[in-house]
Amino acid sequence: MDFTKIKPIHLDILREIGNIGAGHAATALSTLLNKAVDMKVPSVEVISFDEITEMVGGSENIVASVFLRIIGEAPGCMFFMLPIKQAEQLLFDIFGGQDIDLDDRFTSEMSLSALQEIGNILSGSYLTAFSDFTKLNLQPSVPATSIDMAGAILSFGLFEISTVSDFAIVIDTAFVDMKNEDEVKGHFFLLPDPDSFEKIFKSLGVPLA
């Protein structure tokens, strides 16, 4: 994997994957919540490890996250990550108006389980769209949930890429509220493994030169 070979067209391809994938996930979320959900134009960036955690408000910022491994022809990691407040709001909507406190151990197990299932459904739609678009065979692993520091969580997705580089290509799509564009509901991070990029580009007819 040679980052210098990546041309603007390759970044466009990755952006389109984020667009199609998160578009499907947003639709799924919208159906779950029975209300409109919008998303931002995906950003695709080659960034250092420290910059990745800045994307979610710094390494120490506490987030709720669902993580899964992508298994198959183009392996990688996927995170559905959202601020605690937004996670509580999401669960409030799902549970039909029941107040959720993610700090409370008593309600947490049920909440975490619900969150994991939401993450599973959304990542599943993202991945299906990704797989259909590229004609690559991709399956999700069983998801895992964690509420912790963003840095600690995200670094888990960096191990594959960190053996070859000090930078990662991150495909980030943010969900926003229809009425209030500034209010980010959550992020989808797709981090393909280093060897997967070539397969993705090849499958779409633009191999790295």
Binding site: F49, G58, S59, M149, F156
Partner: peptide, 23 residues
């Protein structure tokens, strides 16, 4: 100290790294 970095410190300064997961 950021991810995959190292540094030194002498008093009165302190040294700190954030968000250690499996690191």
């Amino acid at each position: 100290v950021g991810i995959a970095e190292l540094d030194l410190v002498v008093p009165p300064d302190t040294i700190r790294t954030t968000g250690l997961g499996s690191c």
